[in-house]
């Protein structure tokens, strides 16, 4: 009996198809990343799972039950954090946490105190005075204070600063260690990369890619940055040599103090040939990045959908501003494939 099992799920709002044959599975004890830009159908999927929206077709099962019909019984086993938390303006954060916990059957006060301290949340303020990040923390504290088997998190870190994001990641790992299952919807890719076992990428209401991170990385290219000796015609010849190699894409070259700085993408299976060529040239500096989820994501969205392109474009900018250190940099002995 899987925590979440969705097959061919469909849901329309008027003429808009929000979900168009979505498949998604969460195994017991698994943390599943659910990726897609705004409007892809992530929240609609979660609302169907919570029995808030009625599906138009296909199958959605929560612990083997019908999320619409058995909502109350199923909700005893899960906890939910929405992406945009709205709280009762005249309740304090502490009161809202207690209310949500009690409706789920009560929470441990020491656990609540610990979470409040870790998330640096002042529970005595009225909810109307909280910023977006603080409202988000209220929902997170209520969720992590519960001992539900399944955590359904819809872009839970929107509005949190990087420090708080790492606290969140820590509690997510703890939940995973305790054997709880998690559905984590996000467009913050580094967050998903850190904790998720498998990833489902959704686009226009349908899953376009699904599998473990390792599996998905096979589908894409690594980014290589290298410094080549030689300038002028020598440099140009070397650039031409590299460009001619099979599996090398989008090569750019810029003058560098020691010669030329080149950046290019390499297909996974062509990496060994590239390394040999670089070795022959006598490369001075070398960095290779394994494909990040962001690259995966970009490839899925940049192919046809112009609108999605715009979204991803802004996404990438946001991320490079917020988390400049989040992309993994690995040298030759990393997992980018040493010959």
């Amino acid at each position: 009996m899987l925590p979440i099992e969705i097959r061919d799920l469909r849901k329309s709002f008027g003429t808009t198809k929000a979900l168009d044959g979505l498949d998604l599975t969460v195994q017991q004890g698994e943390v599943v990343g659910f990726l897609g830009p705004n409007g892809a159908g992530k929240s609609t999927t979660i609302r169907v799972l919570l029995g808030l929206l009625r599906s138009d077709g296909g199958e959605a099962k929560l612990f083997g039950g019908d999320p619409w019909r058995d909502a109350v019984a199923l909700h005893r086993r899960l906890t939910y954090v929405p992406g945009d938390v709205s709280l009762w303006p005249n309740l304090t954060g502490g009161e809202a946490i207690d209310l949500l916990a009690r409706l789920r059957g009560g929470a441990d006060p020491t656990r609540k105190a610990e979470l409040l301290e870790r998330f640096e949340l002042d529970p005595t303020k009225k909810a109307r005075t909280y910023s977006k990040g603080n409202r988000q923390k209220v929902a997170l504290v209520a969720a992590f204070a519960s001992d539900a088997e399944l955590l359904v998190l819809d872009e839970p870190t929107s509005g949190l600063d990087p420090l708080m994001e790492s606290v969140f990641t820590e509690y997510l790992r703890e939940a995973k260690a305790a054997g709880r299952s998690v559905l984590l919807s996000s467009h913050i890719l580094s967050e998903v990369e850190k904790v998720c076992d498998t990833v489902t990428i959704i686009r226009a209401g349908r899953a376009v890619e699904s599998g473990t991170l390792e599996e998905l990385r096979h589908l894409t290219r690594s980014k290589v940055m290298a410094v080549l000796p030689g300038t002028g015609s020598v440099g140009e010849a070397r650039v031409a040599q590299l460009t001619a190699l099979p599996g090398v894409h989008d090569l750019t070259a810029e003058p560098h103090t020691e010669g030329l700085h080149v950046v290019f993408d390499v297909d996974h299976e062509a990496m060994s040939g590239v390394l040999t060529a670089l070795g022959d040239i006598g490369v001075r500096g070398f960095t290779a990045q394994p494909p990040s989820l962001e690259d995966l994501f970009m490839r899925h969205y940049s192919e046809s959908n112009v609108e999605a392109n715009v979204e991803i474009g802004s996404l990438r900018r946001d991320r490079s501003l917020e988390l400049p250190t989040s992309t993994q940099t690995t040298d030759l002995d990393g997992d980018s494939g040493q010959p």
Partner: peptide, 26 residues
């Protein structure tokens, strides 16, 4: 200026009707 409120909810705030009354009380 708003003043700080309760850290914990009263024991009675544990049902949708208690919440609805709390919202509409004043």
């Amino acid at each position: 200026n708003p003043k700080p409120g309760r850290i914990d909810a009263r024991a009675s705030l544990r049902s949708p009707s208690a919440l609805a009354w709390r919202q509409q009380r004043t």
